[in-house]
């Protein structure tokens, strides 16, 4: 969008400098946050290296070895987390599911943020009827329970991974739009924005290069709030059988298909349920902490 050489020093790097300075000079990071960061790094590492680290192919079956116990319940080390109803290795499926669920959550969060911020900026720039239209859309979107909308869309258009990610991307876009619009309107009145405008910068440059970096911290916190919601939403829809479909697997899909075996083979659904809970909790904790760190009024 913009080449780096022409960027004015100070504004573009402000977020990172601010973060770094706060990490360096602020209070010690709480233990809980350290754990949360480590967990998320672990999840990311698993998602990136899924093919390398999973002991079996996630669809590989061993029907003569169905529902075998995990190690912590006295099973063998061949299947550390046991096997499922088709004799597939639960650990391998869990690793693939983590990748699938994180991919969906990242993809959807980014789609939501891009749509929301763009519409927010459009509203802030044009004002008038455009702004009213965007705000009407925001209200409309906020008024409809998203799960109902998602069920309707999936029922009508069937299911594919791309459609599913895009659909979840529409979750919470209105929050970004509201934040971006409000902050952009107030940002435009600041001296730096007026100066750039006076120097003849295009709206692209003004919003993309100057206002966005200044409001990014708020948006990032908002993304950390939406991220676990999307993980839970994906899990919920997959649990209901409307999300990720076999032979693909995701955390919610594993829980959904494992529920029949809750009393006879609980390990099939306990592992993915644990990962969903802990990941959602960690992202929320981290987001909460980031908000505190980035809010100048709290320092």
């Amino acid at each position: 969008m913009v080449d780096a050489t022409s960027s004015p020093a100070g504004t573009g790097g402000s977020l990172i400098t601010r973060l770094l300075s706060r990490f360096a000079t602020g209070n010690r990071m709480p233990l809980l946050i350290v754990i949360a960061i480590l967990w998320l790094v672990l999840m990311l590492a698993i998602a990136v290296s899924a093919d390398l680290i999973s002991p079996y192919r996630f669809t590989q079956m061993d029907l003569r070895n169905r529902l075998s116990l995990p190690v912590f319940m006295g099973g063998s080390w061949r299947h550390v987390l046991g096997t499922d109803e088709l004799g597939r290795d639960v650990l391998s499926r869990l690793i693939t599911s983590i990748r699938m669920s994180l991919l969906i959550a990242f993809g959807a969060t980014i789609i939501g943020a891009v749509i929301g911020v763009t519409l927010g900026f459009v509203a802030a720039h044009f004002r008038g009827i455009v702004e009213q239209a965007v705000l009407a859309l925001v209200d409309f979107s906020a008024a409809i329970p998203f799960l109902v909308l998602a069920l309707a869309v999936l029922a009508f258009f069937g299911n594919s991974l791309v459609l599913f990610v895009c659909l979840l991307g529409f979750h919470a876009w209105e929050r970004y739009a509201r934040i971006a619009r409000g902050l952009a309107i107030s940002g435009k009145t600041h001296g730096y924005a007026a100066a750039v405008h006076q120097l003849g910068a295009s709206p692209w440059r003004l919003y993309g290069r100057h206002i966005l970096p200044n409001i990014a911290s708020t948006l990032i916190v908002s993304m950390t709030l939406a991220f676990p919601e999307i993980i839970l939403l994906e899990s919920g829809l997959s649990f209901l059988g409307l999300g990720i479909q076999p032979p693909d697997t995701s955390l919610g899909n594993m829980v959904g298909f494992g529920r029949e075996y809750l009393s006879s083979a609980p390990w099939i659904m306990l592992a993915p349920a644990f990962v969903i809970t802990v990941t959602a909790l960690c992202v929320s904790l981290l987001g909460d902490w980031l908000r505190d760190r980035l809010d100048p009024t709290l320092s």
Partner: peptide, 16 residues
């Protein structure tokens, strides 16, 4: 999805 008993599981076995 399981119109026939164990249909999804059977289908996954055959697909594999």
């Amino acid at each position: 999805n399981d119109y026939y008993t164990a249909q999804t599981a059977t289908a996954q076995i055959n697909t594999e």
